[in-house]
Simulated scan of single mutants.
Amino acid sequence: MLKVGLLGAGRIGQVHAVNISGHERSTLVAVSDVNTAAADALATKYSAKSCSSDEILADSSIDAVLVATSTDTHSDLIEAATAAGKAVLCEKPVDLSLARAKECLAKAQATGIPVMIGFNRRFDPNFAAVKVAAETGEIGKSELLSVTSFDPAPPPVSYIKVSGGLFRDMMIHDFDMANFLMGAVPQEVSAVGSSIVDPAIGEVGDFDTAIVTMRYADGRLAVIRNSRRAVYGYDQRVELLGSEGLLSADNVLENTVSKATTAGVTSAKPEFFFLERYMRAYAAEWTAFVEAVVANSPVPVTLEDGISALALAEAATESARTGKPVTVSH
């Protein structure tokens, strides 16, 4: 039984607590958060202890930690946890700084302790099926990828100020999805961004609407579209065009009921936000982590994967600011 410490008791920490405690091969034994009341409440719910992150890292009986704290703490906690001999599953991104993330990679690798980055969308059953179909050649050679990711509403500006920007905070999932589905990191990134949903987002130097195009060394292309506002719900789709066909994964709807009348055909809206849309993906992600740690096998989403996505986010940020394509350094 894998004994797990949860660092972070916020919204995403609570999602992870469900999966840790509900898995047959893991148990939640400790919770920490800068908001001690939140840590106390979550720990009590799962019969765990509430303590500081330092205490969790120093506890030799704890086998693994799940890092669900603010992004600016991720690299420090990964380094401390691996130095303490604890396997790590860390929420994205690795850091707000690519240089700092690379330092973290070097230190974590030196310990030989597994670190997995929480790009949960790889474990969505629909996107995973697209990956399998593409790898087995069902559409020939993949040539053009389109990723659509629209949030139902923008977060508060107070969050935007500390998020690292749309490309590092929101689109980083889509950069990883592109790397996942195309099986490579692109060579060049071009980005354009605007603030048309909420002018206050632009006033703090960020975008709420953006398009990124990416070119691969072999000529393949990928397009990512992001918006902070889709009034009809959480819009999450991918299309992969190949030499012999097209693969697509559409939205998951609130229900499967449709109505057909003389006025037309209607169906339910997409599930409203990521907690509803990706609950199965989070559970599958945790299972994959547990199985890798228990079997001492490679984790399916590596720290290097996290750095690749962050490199694309930094390139997109630069491109959007300068209006010029940016070559990605590998």
Rank of each mutant, 00 (worst) to 15 (best):
T213G: 10
A281P: 06
A101I: 01
V290W: 11
A315F: 03
I78D: 06
A315D: 11
P114Y: 07
T27Y: 03
K259Y: 15
A30W: 06
V197S: 09
E304D: 13
I211S: 11
L6A: 02
E203V: 09
P298I: 04
D218I: 05
S227Q: 12
T256N: 14
S61A: 13
V265H: 12
A191K: 05
S142H: 01
D218H: 04
G242K: 14
D59L: 12
L42Y: 00
K86S: 04
A249Y: 06
E138D: 09
D72Q: 14
R321K: 14
E143F: 05
D176P: 04
A222V: 11
A81V: 01
E91G: 03
T322V: 08
Q109S: 11
L7K: 08
Y159V: 09
E135I: 04
L241E: 04
L166D: 00
P298V: 03
M279G: 05
V299A: 07
F119W: 11
R321D: 01
S248M: 15
D208Y: 09
T327M: 15
V94P: 14
A106S: 09
E254D: 10
L28G: 00
A37R: 15
F273S: 12
A217W: 09
A99T: 12
T287Y: 01
T69G: 03
M182W: 02
A128F: 03
L246S: 05
I117S: 05
A128V: 02
E314T: 10
F175S: 03
